[in-house]
Every structure is written in structure tokens, then in C-alpha cells.
Design a protein around this nucleic acid. Sequence first.
DNA 1: TATATTTGCAACTGATTGGTTTCATAAATA
DNA 2: TATTTATGAAACCAATCAGTTGCAAATATA
Lengths: 108, 108
Amino acid sequence: MRRDVFQAISDPTRRAIISLIALHAMTPNALAAHFDTSRQAVSKHLRILTECQLVKQHFQGREIYYQLEVSKMKEIDKWLEQFRKIWEQRFNELDSVLLTLKNKENES
Amino acid sequence: MRRDVFQAISDPTRRAIISLIALHAMTPNALAAHFDTSRQAVSKHLRILTECQLVKQHFQGREIYYQLEVSKMKEIDKWLEQFRKIWEQRFNELDSVLLTLKNKENES
DNA sequence: TATATTTGCAACTGATTGGTTTCATAAATA
DNA sequence: TATTTATGAAACCAATCAGTTGCAAATATA
């Protein structure tokens, strides 16, 4: 059973859940109201999200509120870092090409 | 067949491929040398990456070079944007709490 | 106390996944 | 020309996935 942040966000329903609970905690029932699938299906998604620590639950009577562990999202951000460097570099290269062209223009 | 960037990066082998070709284009054979799996398995991953336009192929004789479409990675970055706002906000809230404490300290 | 509500868990199901082996095609090379 | 090399595609397989239905447990309410 692979269970990491990347696998967690691969499912569109789970991405929607993540977005919904990002601002304030929600119960499984309240969440399920936003989807076409059953309450149990949403519960299963929540279990997966909990297992990879993207979500934290806090109990209040018989209700369970699920809240996003925003800091865990940084793991994705961290992985993206390597590419961010590349796309900035590519942009700078394009920049210097334009600069070279401009200089040549001035010389002639 | 769901085929989007998020599903593409959910597989660890595919993430490794993406990282490898990020800097310079590589052939399937050269890529396969980095993994325990067969050349065909890598080829299948490359097809998935191509289908969701994360990768571009350019032909050179009988060899096919695969290159990362870095700009496509920005789609993930874009989705992360909403959470980046939240974790910055949380940080600022913490900041103002600390500031309030400090002010109270000065008053007394 | 009896009933309704909120929830997680287990069993099942069809679809998808990541891998394999086998084959066909096209380009390079002996 | 015959052979080797680089590649994609098809057929198959076991494991996993996302969904379902049905059930048990615990809390709230009548």
C-alpha cells in the first residue's frame, strides 16, 4: 500500500476535499453533501488523507472534524522547487538572448 | 482513462523520470538504465507522461529524446497557490499574536 | 429507556494500474 | 544484404483503487 502526499492528491475527489477543509474543519457528513458519492466513499478518502498525515481529526461528541495539515502540503512545494529553479533559469536564458539581440542591434 | 498532471506525478518512478529529464532530454534506453524495471515499463511511463503533455519527444534517427515540458509543471504550482496563501496567512496570524504579546509587555 | 444520528469498518465488485513477455518496425552497422 | 539496436504496441496478470452495501458502536435526543 503506497501512501504518500503525491498519491493522495492524485484523486480529484480528494483534491476537492483538501480544498474544502483548507479554510475550516468539516465533518464527513458535511463534506459528503458536496459530492455525488456516498458518505462512506468520502470517509474512505478521509482515511487515506489521515494515513498520509495530510489531515488531522479532532473529536467533538460523536462528530469528527477533519482539518487540513497545511504544512504537509509544503512537501509538494518542496519537490516542485527543483523545477522552479529550471523554469526561472530558462526565463533568464531567454532574457539574455533578447539582450544579446538588442546589443547587436545597437552595434550595427 | 483519467490522465492529468496529478495522476502523472503520483507514481514514484514517473517522478524520478521527470527529475532525470528535467535538465536534459534522454532516450528511453538511457532512462531505463536508472531503474530496476524493464525498458518497456519505462516506455509505458513515458507514454503516460506524453499523453498528459508533461513530456515532449524529439526524434533523432531511430532514437527518441524525451524532454520535460517544464511549463506544464506550473499547473501543480498553480493548484498549490491556494494553500500557499493559507500557510502565509497562518504565519502572519502567529506574527500578530506575538506582536500583541510584545505590546502588552511594553504597556505593563 | 427507546430511537435517531454520526461515524468507522468489513466484504464485495468492476475498473485501473504497473509490471511482464512477446512481437513488429525502422534505423544503424557489419 | 544480414544482423544488431532502439523503440512502440499488444496481450496478459496480479495488485490496487474507488466505489458500493451492510453492519456495529457510540453519542444525542425524544
